[in-house]
Every structure is written in C-alpha cells, then in structure tokens.
C-alpha cells in the first residue's frame, strides 16, 4: 500500500476511499445519534406516566 503514496493517481484513489469513509461513517453516526435521541425521548414520555399499551 505504501507504494501508492505520491503516485500519479494517488489523489483519485485517496478521494474515492475518503468519500466512501466519510459517507458511511457519517451515516452510521447519524443512525446512532438518532437512536440515542429517540431512546431519550421515549424514556422522557414514559417517565411522565405515558406508557405503551403492552407496558401498563
């Protein structure tokens, strides 16, 4: 892999893998953040005494 650095097409190869990493990592972080936000919102509602039918 080290022989790729500084070669003619290094910029194209690095940007392909770079954009893939950014998009997939961004997607994963967004999904995880949404999950934690929704768990928090659900817990807040349940703490206020509003429970789902199967939890009462």
């Amino acid at each position: 892999m080290s022989e790729l650095f500084g070669t003619q097409y290094f910029g194209f190869i690095a940007s392909s893998f770079g954009v893939t990493l950014i998009v997939l990592l961004g997607m994963t972080i967004w999904i995880l953040m949404t999950y934690h936000a929704r768990r928090k919102a659900l817990a807040k509602l349940e703490a206020a005494g509003i429970k789902r039918a199967n939890k009462t």
Binding site: T7, Q8, Y9, F10, F12, I13, S16, F17, T20
Partner: peptide, 11 residues
C-alpha cells in the same frame, strides 16, 4: 487501469 483499479473495490 494501473493503480486506479483499486477504486473498483468501493465503487
């Protein structure tokens, strides 16, 4: 394609 063939592995 030379070294750019590696782009195929994500594309």
């Amino acid at each position: 394609q030379g070294r750019t063939v590696r782009i195929m592995f994500v594309h």
